[in-house]
């Protein structure tokens, strides 16, 4: 099968869905000139009305997208860096997820918000977050977190076709990663985890770029500790059964989450596994997350973000 880059996979998802459905359009800052390569060529191909450059006014264009989605369109809103979503918190967290619910299910809000997430590029606090916990704390919006080109394309296509708001984090460190992507049309259902590597000793649940780090560690420990890497691919809906099934086999769980540890997805999953699968566990659940600090810039970043060393140490601590 052909291999393409992660950003190209997203670009293909846009092209295919925009050709399939003329109500789909893209909106954001400097998209037409493709400030990220996933919007390359779209403005020329689809014209002025379907690839829109907005002023720097996130609250206005995110709210506009919510209303546009209610009234017949399927906007994809590219926030550039996902950290910028805080400037439109009301629109993304209180309006998009809650509008259908608060109005008795009488309107749907099929909008996709997306942005570059994650650290590792020394871009500091407002350009390095992966704020999953904030999204998960707002019932009514789904959250896709692809870790491979295949998942990036399939999940984006599903996100665009979904009749609900979807937040889509793509990771900067994955932008140029290559992987197999079929040429024919496919989608990936939300809420179905993918076991990225099978193993028998320790289950590692990781998402987005952390999957790549977990796989690197699993490979390093090959022959010593057999690590199973489970990638949920979407955090809402979340495939808890896949995690429990894996833990049933390994009896050990490490959760790798690049978001800040306190009140994180990792913390939530740990609680759910204790609740539903306490007797499956032989060792305490370990979390490897970003430390409870702002994400620093420069050389300090590495001390806060998860790393292969921290993941390896966590795996070793439970693989007794």
């Amino acid at each position: 099968m052909r291999e393409i880059q992660y950003h190209k996979a997203i670009n293909e998802a846009f092209i295919e869905e925009m050709e399939r459905d003329e109500t789909v359009y893209l909106m954001g800052e400097s998209l037409r000139g493709a400030n990220y390569p996933h919007s390359e060529g779209l403005a020329k191909r689809f014209g002025d009305q379907r690839v829109l450059d907005t002023p720097i006014c996130e609250a206005a264009f995110c709210g506009a997208a919510v209303a546009s989605a209610m009234t017949g369109y399927r906007p994809i809103v590219d926030l550039m860096f996902i950290d910028f979503m805080y400037t439109a918190a009301d629109e993304i967290l209180l309006k998009a997820p809650q509008w259908r619910f608060m109005h008795g299910g009488k309107v749907n809000v099929p909008v996709v918000f997306m942005g570059a997430a994650g650290g590792g590029m020394k871009l500091a606090n407002e350009h390095s977050q992966i704020p999953s916990s904030i999204i998960l704390h707002s019932p009514g919006i789904k959250l896709a977190v692809p870790s491979t080109p295949y998942d990036a394309k399939g999940l984006m296509k599903t996100a665009i076709r979904d009749n609900n708001p979807v937040m889509y984090f793509w990771h900067k460190q994955l932008m140029a990663v290559t992987g197999e992507v079929p040429e024919e049309d496919y989608t990936i259902p939300f809420g179905v985890a993918d076991v990225k590597r099978e193993g028998t000793d320790v289950t590692v649940v990781a998402y987005s770029y952390m999957v790549q780090l977990a796989l690197e560690v699993a490979k390093k420990l090959e022959g010593e500790i057999s690590v199973e890497v489970v990638d949920p691919r979407t955090l809402e809906p979340f495939d808890l059964d896949a995690v429990l099934k894996s833990v049933e086999k390994t009896n050990r769980l490490v959760i790798v989450d690049e978001d800040t540890e306190r009140c994180s997805f990792a913390s939530e999953l740990a609680a759910q596994v204790v609740d539903k699968g306490f007797t499956l566990l032989d060792e305490p659940i370990k979390r490897v997350c970003a430390g409870n600090y702002p994400i620093p810039g420069g050389y300090m970043e590495q001390h806060v973000l998860p790393s292969v060393e921290k993941i390896e140490a966590a795996i070793r601590s439970v693989a007794v």
Partner: peptide, 16 residues
């Protein structure tokens, strides 16, 4: 909230 929401209605009105 009504300001951004109205912009969205306006886009729909202009396009459809």
């Amino acid at each position: 909230t009504g300001f951004p929401i109205s912009v969205g209605y306006g886009m729909t009105s202009k396009w459809n």
